[in-house]
Amino acid sequence: MAATQVLSKDTSVPMKNELLAGRTRAAMIFLLPMMLALAIVAGWPLLRSIWFSFTDASLVHLYEAKFVGFKNYLNWIDLPSGKRVYTGVLVDKGWWNAVWNTLRFGTVSVVLETIFGLAVALVLNAEFKGRGIVRAAILVPWAIPTVVSAKMWAWMLNDQLGIVNDMLQRLGIITEKIAWAADANYSMAAVLMVDIWKTTPFMALLILAGLQMVPKDVYEAAEIDGVHPVKVFFKVTLPLIKPALMVAVIFRLMDAMRIFDLIYVLTPNSSQTKTMSVISRENLFDFDKFAYGSAESTLLFVFLLIMVTAYIKFAKVNLDGSTQ
């Protein structure tokens, strides 16, 4: 678990033992409310979900759930013919399709949002007239409730009545109206477009915060030395904003991998865009497969845990290489 030490450039004050003990005690007291809050608000529901994934729970009969072991994950039946049939989430084609969609969506959206967020942050970091208003303006997509912005985009992406097709046609980019949400070739692109539009501001704001921490004299020194701006960016700026960038990416990654509401409104039933959260909602609430849906949620949790841990490990290697 040394993983997160990436983040801890150690700023703890070195001091005498009794003082240290006092500080540690204070720290424990400070941590208590947070741990307590999280244990109650997150711990219980989380353990409950994991427990349900090992039962035969149905939402209508939640309290009569019986323990069934790993059956929701993997189970098999031997047919009289001697053939063995496997069932469970782990052999569910729909599930693996959702995993693939989630990965595809998560990777593309996080990568593009980071690049665009970085670009927007760099622009906003520059001094120019009306900067304050521009800063407020770029936050608008993030500020509109997802329930609404998803519906708004659904409307704009409508093939006949939508403004997007109309615009593209007027610009001569397309000749035939595209059914964005319906056409399997475009639905993922449409979802990605809306998500990137919506969450780039989040990235930009956090990166901007990081950029503000870069001391101005660093740039001045580089300018005097005549270092090419691109080189300054990669050698100076990027390493310095890395902590901020990394936290932003971690939270974006977790959100992207759990993407739900946008797809739920835009293309809820398309197999092209069905992600892990969407398929798990379907089983939890629409279908009578609460336990199965819980198993899917648990797998998503494990999947994210592995992914984020790996990311932190990987980023650490990178960070050490560049800052020291």
Partner: peptide
Amino acid sequence: SPKGVLAYQEEESRGVWQLGN
């Protein structure tokens, strides 16, 4: 029928219809 009909729900159909289309 337009290809986009595969994404229509009630309101999209009514939208096209009520515009006289």
